[in-house]
């Protein structure tokens, strides 16, 4: 839905953005809309210009559910950097999300709470 490649000058590796995130949601359910809002907030706040976010509605592409081994929804899959991690839930527990994504709240922006 919203791939946001940013200009290359920030990332010397040059193979795409630093953060690759896939968010799987199920239509416009409460959890899904909340998750979309939360991840967008986080990305804008901490990862501005360094991320690629793909939001997939598995109602539209049910075959992906098996392919990506989804159980709980919404699920955010962090493909880069580091190990692949799965974050299940509406991402409202920001501390956990940041920790799982490997983002230090202090170095991003002020007022992380």
């Amino acid at each position: 839905m919203e791939p946001e490649p940013f200009p290359e000058f920030l990332d010397p590796a040059a193979n795409g953005p630093e953060y690759v995130l896939h968010l799987y949601i199920t239509g416009a359910t409460v959890n899904s809309t909340r998750a979309v809002r939360n991840i967008k907030d986080i990305c804008e706040q901490y990862l501005k210009g360094r991320y690629e976010l793909l939001i997939v509605d598995i109602f539209q592409q049910p075959e992906l559910a098996q392919q990506e081994d989804l159980i709980g929804v919404p699920t955010l899959i962090k493909l880069k950097p580091g190990l692949v991690r799965r974050l299940v839930g509406d991402l409202s527990n920001r501390d956990r999300v940041l920790k799982a994504l490997g983002i230090e709240p202090a170095d991003g922006a002020p007022g992380h709470e």
């Binding site: 959890n31 909340r34 709980g72 929804v73 799965r86 839930g89 509406d90 409202s92 956990r96």
Partner: peptide
Amino acid sequence: EIEETGEYDLEGL
């Protein structure tokens, strides 16, 4: 591999 970050359901299943 799974981190709970809030409300969710098993719709994926």
